[in-house]
Design a protein around this nucleic acid. Structure first.
Lengths: 126, 126
DNA sequence: CGCGTATTGCGACTCAGTCGCAACTAAGAT
DNA sequence: ATCTTAGTTGCGACTGAGTCGCAATACGCG
């Protein structure tokens, strides 16, 4: 556990919204200005492999990059509004059943899952 | 409808597996050697916006790029084995219910959805 | 056939992510 | 407290995906 990793961890843990790698870099540098871009990517990979964070695309609403969030308890669905860009999260029991059913019917052991939806939110639908 | 678009379309329609942009370029060039990389990306964007193809990550098993497949009738779930790399598709009625429920409960109009799962397939589980 | 609009090829560019390597450091052993 | 070493870091160069502006071209409609 190095100072750099502590900084990156803290940034992710205290984030109020989904951050991409370059935002994490900027915020981590504010805590420890020695943090390098490679270290951010390497730490992100590590956390991903450990299952401590989830990687999201958010339907590529803003470019090709990835976003990260701390993974706690229950998975949630990400809904991205194609007009206003708002990201809404939703926890669903049906989603949990779907995964259980998948594991049983396909004899597949799920490690990570990602359900993202693009469309129009209540305020933007037409 | 240009010759280039016809070539790209044909490649996607006759593909036996998920192709990424550079693979589509290579195969489209075999049909019409004037096809350019930009044209492939522009056509892919067009087809995506029209809802004729779906864009997949396949859990980034092989790099950061995207894969494409023709969108027909029913959505399906993509399962990617983290060990052998095999991609399995699965159609689920529960998935359809989940989307319906989401649209109702969140007052969200779904245009596109993507459920990808990473884990271990029957042959690779441990 | 002629015309205007949409599309294309090209080349340069951006941006995300990766890699090899030498220097450094955390943390366990003595 | 110091030594040691395996793991981690910063750096800089690199790759590969995707984008963009622009001049040239082609589609397809009248």
């Amino acid at each position: 556990m190095t100072a750099q990793r502590r900084a990156i961890l803290k940034v992710i843990e205290t984030a109020s919204k989904h951050l991409d790698a370059s935002q994490i870099l900027r915020k981590a540098r504010a805590l420890d200005n020695s943090v390098d871009r490679s270290t951010v990517y390497r730490t992100l990979d590590l956390l991903k492999r450990q299952g401590l964070i989830d990687e999201l695309d958010l339907m590529h609403l803003k470019g090709e990059g990835h976003y990260y969030e701390r993974k706690l308890g229950r998975d949630h669905i990400h809904m991205a509004c194609l007009r206003c860009g708002k990201i809404t999260e939703f926890v669903s029991e049906t989603f949990e059943s779907l995964k259980t059913q998948l594991e049983r019917d396909c004899r597949f052991h799920i490690v990570v899952s990602r359900l993202e939806v693009g469309g129009y939110c209540a305020g933007c639908r037409h």
